[in-house]
Design a protein around this nucleic acid. Structure first.
Lengths: 352, 352
DNA sequence: CTGAAAGCGCTTACAG
DNA sequence: CTGAAAGCGCTTACAG
């Protein structure tokens, strides 16, 4: 019932060139003598008929689909769009197709997505999951020996291939930056830890840096990743006796929401409140004030992830050495959302 | 050489359940009697072995891959990320996989991407291309009878399935809005027409509305889509005897770049210059001032595109009626970047 | 209701 | 250097 005209097959080409299908296959795969008359005729026939080898047939025989699966939480966050772009570009250059699935931060969807991808016989997977340490899903992939590479996730177990940044170190840098501006009451707003091991590592870095600096870490303000209105949460966080003068946010999207909340509460950033993000989303550089944030090399991360996966797919089980987190370098973008501590306490409007 | 453990096949299941492979196939496809003992045994065997039908095998037989191809210019623009999200969600719900390719606004890449996707035997395509009217690529798809649906493109030829908004009408609304604020010198900044038929249609709407209102349209200021620094272009546009007091930008990303340029030129938006975008990217609502723009229902567009493609794939050639542009409704977000005309002319800094 | 068999488009030992 | 043949994992008329 498909409306696609039936395309030429290897048999059509063989008939036209008056050779066997085996010869056509060899020409297509570069295993034929380059100058024999048969090869020439096959080349012509291929061109005339517009023949393109059917990857299903090939895949069935070779048990490889030339396709990888890509699993991300959401495309609504440009940070993932960046890695997808990188994976896609590298995969295409290597002749691989990319099957994309978004899980919307839902753990059940993660497993479902992987099942679907495996039923399409992808040769490997690149994924960003909620937790990478203690994950039934990844355990299952390990057991089934499906090659995979994590992106953004930073597993502490050593046998998992991953491409990410040093989340702990980056978070420490943020605390040090804020401290250098005189802040000593620094809070952290983070995506729910259950949905993100990155968020947890960034908190670890924050916590560690605070303790080292002799400062007291605040309890984390956990928020949903999709939350856009954080007015209530920020008001609560600032309504304690000694409120924080700076907030480190575990993602740029959260930082943007925090800045919106600050505005609605009548606070000016950075005069009344300093804000730092994490990710380096391009458009946050266009905000006024420009967001201060940790920049991750998103597209490079995607490219590197594919390169690593390609090695894994080629080398099979013996590639133990590849199965470890790769840390790419991040950078700190000094925007305009961090300023010196304000003397005196800003007045919040009364709650609604 | 793949490291994937060989998964159970239909034959493994058949052996375990002591039935023929035909029976297993029927159970998997819901064509077996639901309560027969054989069916029961097959169900158990499937569960015990964790059997998942190999789509390559199925696809080879049925000539359908349960996969569609998705071609977009770039994921760096969140407007495309939105439609991808919608397509992906709808496709997954229908049991389809989505092969994604970005072309980076390159026409050669468009053709290459489609070739690659077709070699993966996708059942249909959803694409956003540079031009949808006069396109060799689309002509070729028509001829080969590959089902496809365009997104964002708004073809004027009637036989192409597309899901978009009424770009001309939306652009007219923008001009009317600006006029209601007293602007009568309105310029337009657009992505290069050769790279985007949308940009051209938005210009047509602008031109038409200007003429109707008795105003004189300015020559369009064409810029590259990826351009982030438009300082020079905007300075030039404002250095004429009667400079525009408002700029309509053909995309939000361009509007953001224009706002950046305005800031660098010492102009305040909207006091010295009103700016309007087109797309409705979420983060532009977080800008200060918040961007006034046309909001497109990006995710819905993606979902509708898949729904339309599904019909097309099911019905084959006779579905002539489906092959026409579908226009979804857009809305105008009244942000803070449009204000009344300033009396007197803002002073630009001297060129560098 | 179930099975034996053909065949989808390829690749790849195995002969020659 | 080339071909005949088997087989990858499925589906689907065709018998029974």
């Amino acid at each position: 019932m498909s409306s696609v005209k039936t395309p030429p097959t290897i048999r059509t080409v063989a008939a036209r060139a008056e050779v066997s299908v085996a010869t056509v296959s060899r020409v297509v795969n570069g295993l034929a003598p380059p100058h024999s008359p048969a090869t020439q005729r096959v080349r012509e026939a291929i061109k005339e008929l517009g023949f393109r080898p059917n990857r299903l047939g090939r895949g069935l025989k070779t048990a490889r689909s030339s396709t990888i699966g890509l699993v991300i939480p959401s495309l609504a966050n440009p940070v993932f769009a960046g890695s997808v772009q990188g994976v896609q570009a590298a995969a295409r250059a290597a002749g691989y197709g990319v099957l994309l699935t978004a899980t919307n931060y839902d753990k059940g969807e993660e497993a479902g997505a992987v099942e679907t991808l495996l039923s399409h016989y992808v040769d490997g997977l690149i994924l960003t999951v909620a937790k990478s340490d203690d994950s039934e899903l990844l355990d299952a992939l390990d057991e089934r020996e499906v090659p995979y590479v994590l992106v953004y996730n930073q597993p502490s177990v050593r046998h998992r291939a991953a491409v990410t940044v040093d989340n702990v170190a980056a978070a420490r840098e943020v605390v040090e930056l804020l401290k250098s501006y005189g802040h000593d009451r620094i809070g952290m707003v983070a995506g729910q830890f259950c949905d993100s091991d990155r968020a947890r590592l960034r908190w670890l870095g924050y916590d560690d840096a605070m303790l080292r600096a002799g400062l007291e870490p605040d309890p984390v303000i956990e928020v949903a990743f999709e939350a856009t209105d954080l007015t209530q949460e920020i008001r609560d966080a600032l309504s304690v006796p000694e409120p924080p003068t700076a907030l480190f946010c575990s993602t740029d999207l959260i930082a943007v929401a925090v800045m919106g909340a600050a505005t609605r509460l009548g606070l000016e950033v950075p005069r009344d409140l300093s804000v730092v993000g994490f990710d380096g989303i391009a458009m946050t550089a266009a905000l006024r004030p420009q967001l201060t944030t940790i920049v991750q090399p998103t597209e490079t991360m995607g490219r590197e992830a594919f390169a690593l996966l390609a090695k894994l797919m080629a080398s099979g089980e013996e590639a133990e050495s590849l199965r470890a987190p790769t840390l790419l370098s991040h950078s700190l973008r000094r925007g305009e959302t961090v300023g010196p501590v304000r003397t005196g306490r800003p007045k919040l409007p009364p709650p609604v």
